[in-house]
Amino acid sequence: MTTIQRQHFGDHQGQAVTLFTLTNSQGMRLCVTNYGCIITQLWVPDRHGQLEDVVLGFDQLADYQAGHPFFGAIAGRCANRIAGGRFTLDGEEFILATNEAPTGQHLHGGRHGFDKYVWQAEEDGDGVIFRRTSVDGEEGYPGNLQVEHRIGLSEENVMTLSFNARTDRPTLVNLVNHSYYNLQGHQRRIDDQWLKIEADFITPVDDSTMLPTGEIVRVAASAFDFRSARRIGDAMLHRPAQDFDVNYMLKPAAGSAGKAVVRPAATLSCPHSGRVMEVHTCLPGIQFYNGFKLSNKVWNGKAGQRYQAFSGLCLETQAFPDSIHHAHFGNVVLRPGEEYHSRTEHRFSTVA
């Protein structure tokens, strides 16, 4: 049975911040805080039963408060990029922060997105439920949005990330967990790990803006082809800057008739440790980012470990980036009377 312990992690703007530690009977351990719903630690056994923390992050709350590249955090109200920080909904234009300095785009909810708030939290069986109301006008978004985010850890070594939201006014919603994974821990790069993505297509971006062009392009015979498991370092050799930061269009579940059902999205495996992480989701896309920008600043992580380019990778299950400006990408508009819901599972196992 999964147990949950809580401890004081610090304070943020006069509010107490709590760290929850979830541990199952197999010894797998998940630590998450109600500041930004950040997953701070994830200890997973290798083929010999030895535990290793497989997510990047910090030991102290102050390091998260000082700013970071979304290590383990929730991204919202609308994750990924929105062109020019502007969108029109029902004939009304809304202006958002253009907070991604290199590109001038709106990114991951703005300057004070969901990752920078203290959430209400309560234990719920083998998980923790985090709640907050994002008020009308917050970061320029319309509507009072009630959000519920549940993070759980099962006896079967499955970490589950669920989101629910309701609004009193039409708005945009795309909620993402932004953990950086390295199945070998914090001492080595991700080059030797293998990745498979259940997608035949990507939504390519303009390299100067990192915005989708609107095209949907086949991955076959390209650097982006992970339809079969592929060593990440080998794929990186076929990119100009060894870079990956792109959305994959996931295959629908067989017989689902387009319905949002949980199905395989990606598999990350580490030959050295034997760890395997299978990602399953009901969402239409997954953003593969290989951490190539981590060397742009100095990030001194856990136990003083410096995180540099390719220290970890993200597999962010999501709606497509900038969907509000590309009707064929799918709907990210939530209206009163509707409920936003998503579920992603990270299933951990080992191979000999």
Rank of each mutant, 00 (worst) to 15 (best):
T171K: 02
R166C: 13
S179L: 00
Y180N: 05
G152W: 02
L172S: 01
D168I: 07
N177Q: 15
M159P: 05
S179M: 06
I151F: 01
R150C: 13
L183C: 06
S179I: 01
H186R: 09
P170N: 11
S162G: 00
L175Q: 06
R169M: 08
N164Q: 14
R189C: 10
R188N: 06
S179W: 00
L183A: 10
L175E: 07
L153Y: 04
R169F: 08
R169W: 10
F163K: 01
L172G: 08
Y180M: 08
S154D: 04
N182H: 01
L161N: 12
G185K: 04
V173M: 07
E156A: 15
E156L: 07
T171G: 03
N177E: 13
M159I: 15
L183Y: 05
R150L: 12
N174V: 10
T171A: 04
H186Q: 14
R150A: 09
D168L: 10
N182V: 07
L153I: 11
P170G: 06
Y180H: 05
V173L: 09
N174S: 12
L161K: 00
E155S: 11
N182G: 04
N177P: 03
V176W: 05
L183V: 07
T167E: 06
I151R: 02
V158F: 04
S179K: 03
S162W: 00
N174P: 08
R166Q: 15
N174D: 15
R169N: 13
N164E: 13
R188M: 00
R189M: 11
M159Q: 14
N157L: 07
R169V: 08
S179Q: 05
T160D: 08
N164R: 14
S154K: 09
R166D: 10
H178V: 04
R166N: 12
R166L: 11
H178R: 05
P170D: 11
L172Q: 02
S154C: 06
F163C: 03
N174I: 10
E155Y: 08
N164H: 09
E155A: 15
G185M: 03
R188E: 11
I151S: 01
N164D: 09
G185E: 12
D168W: 06
R188F: 00
H178K: 05
H178P: 01
R188I: 03
T171I: 03
L183E: 02
F163Y: 15
N174Y: 04
S179G: 07
Y181D: 07
V176L: 11
I151C: 00
L153K: 09
Q187S: 12
V158E: 14
R169P: 01
S154L: 05
L175R: 12
T160S: 14
N177D: 12
Q187L: 11
N182Y: 05
Q187H: 11
I151E: 00
R188L: 07
T171L: 08
R188H: 11
L175H: 13
Y181S: 07
L161D: 12
F163D: 01
L183N: 08
